[in-house]
Structures are given as structure tokens and as C-alpha cells.
């Protein structure tokens, strides 16, 4: 079963492969250290277009594991 811990392990393995560099360089971001609690780590988000998909994305933003909870503001 791939849960979050397994996913991060998968990312670590892929990060060491040439495939990641060539075909999926974006997943390297999951190998960066988790953000701290400094003010500079705060991310402010706004959401434009709160229809079906926008509402769903806003919900996803609220379940992200983050040391600093954030608030999405419908625009």
C-alpha cells in the first residue's frame, strides 16, 4: 500500500535515477526539507473561480500537511 510515507520513499528512490532528471524533474520538490515555522515559510493563497473544480481544489489545499495552516480566500 502506498501511503504518504511510501510515496516520499518512492520520491527519494526516483530522485536518484536519471529518469527523474529527464522525465519528471518536478517531483524533486518532494525531496526538499519540510518548511519550518518562520514567517517566510507562510504561503498566502487566493482562489479565483469557486465553481466545481475550484471548490474542490480549495478543499485539497486545506488538507495539505503544513506546519502553518493557511486560509483560502474566495475572490
Amino acid at each position: 500500500m502506498i501511503d504518504r510515507r511510501s510515496f516520499l520513499k518512492q520520491m527519494t528512490i526516483l530522485a536518484g535515477s536519471a529518469t527523474m532528471v529527464q522525465s519528471m524533474p518536478w517531483i524533486g520538490v518532494f525531496n526538499q526539507p519540510a518548511a519550518g515555522k518562520a514567517a517566510s515559510d507562510r504561503v498566502r493563497l487566493g482562489v479565483i473561480g469557486m465553481g466545481d473544480r475550484g471548490y474542490h481544489l480549495a478543499q485539497q489545499l486545506q488538507v495539505i500537511r503544513s506546519p502553518r495552516p493557511f486560509t483560502s480566500i474566495p475572490v
Binding site: F7, W26, V29, F30, L45, L57, Q60, L61, I64, R65
Partner: peptide
Amino acid sequence: TTLTMEAFVR
């Protein structure tokens, strides 16, 4: 989709 949004924040 959650992973996608988490990547964006990262």
C-alpha cells in the same frame, strides 16, 4: 490532486 496542490505550495 492533493499531491499536485502540495507540490504547488512547495
